[in-house]
């Protein structure tokens, strides 16, 4: 089997079939997967924050939902993907600690998911499936061969969305 391409926190990468993209231990961050099913080109971004315009130090495009998704599309287009065919899958955005408080700082996982969905909608990219929220970490693997997104969590069965 091919070596899996690891995507770190606040990082992104793209590849063509049969490449496998993976990111380990997603917590409140969100793993955004984009896929062109015809060209079989995939991309994975591990974003940390919802909105680059709210942060002064925003030079790392992969850190934010808005700029991360755009960069992902650019990189995939360069690999031959057609922007109009792209579909998306999402995972992560958990709330790791059960805070009682409802302030924004604590709802960061939820806000990351919301911002990602909104950005994808704006760009006309359909979200096929998502496994988000809850209170546990996830390791995800994306198979560009067939578009499967495999999700591993501690103490639970492996899920494919």
């Amino acid at each position: 089997m091919d070596e899996k391409i690891k995507v770190g926190m606040a990082d992104l990468n793209v590849c063509a079939s049969p490449g496998i993209l993976t990111t380990l231990g997603l917590g409140s961050c969100v793993g955004i997967v984009l896929y062109d099913p015809i060209k079989k080109v995939g991309g994975l971004a591990h974003i940390m924050l919802p909105d680059s315009t709210q942060i002064k130090n925003n030079s790392n495009l992969a850190k934010f939902a808005d700029t991360g998704i755009k960069k992902l599309i650019d990189d995939m287009t360069r690999l031959g993907a057609n922007k109009n065919r792209l579909v998306a899958k999402l995972a992560g955005g958990a709330q790791m600690f059960s805070f009682k408080s409802s302030n924004d700082l604590m709802r960061i996982g939820e806000r990351n998911v919301e911002a990602s969905v909104k950005m994808l909608k704006t760009l006309g990219i359909k979200v096929l499936s998502q496994d988000t929220g809850e209170n546990y970490g996830r390791t995800i693997e994306f198979y560009t061969e067939n578009g499967d997104l495999l999700i591993k969590t501690i103490g639970k069965d492996i899920k494919i969305i």
Binding site: G25, L26, G27, S28, M48, M96, Y136, G137, I154
Partner: peptide, 8 residues
């Protein structure tokens, strides 16, 4: 949980 998830 996983270190990555906690540290996120």
């Amino acid at each position: 949980d996983m270190a990555g998830a906690i540290l996120s």
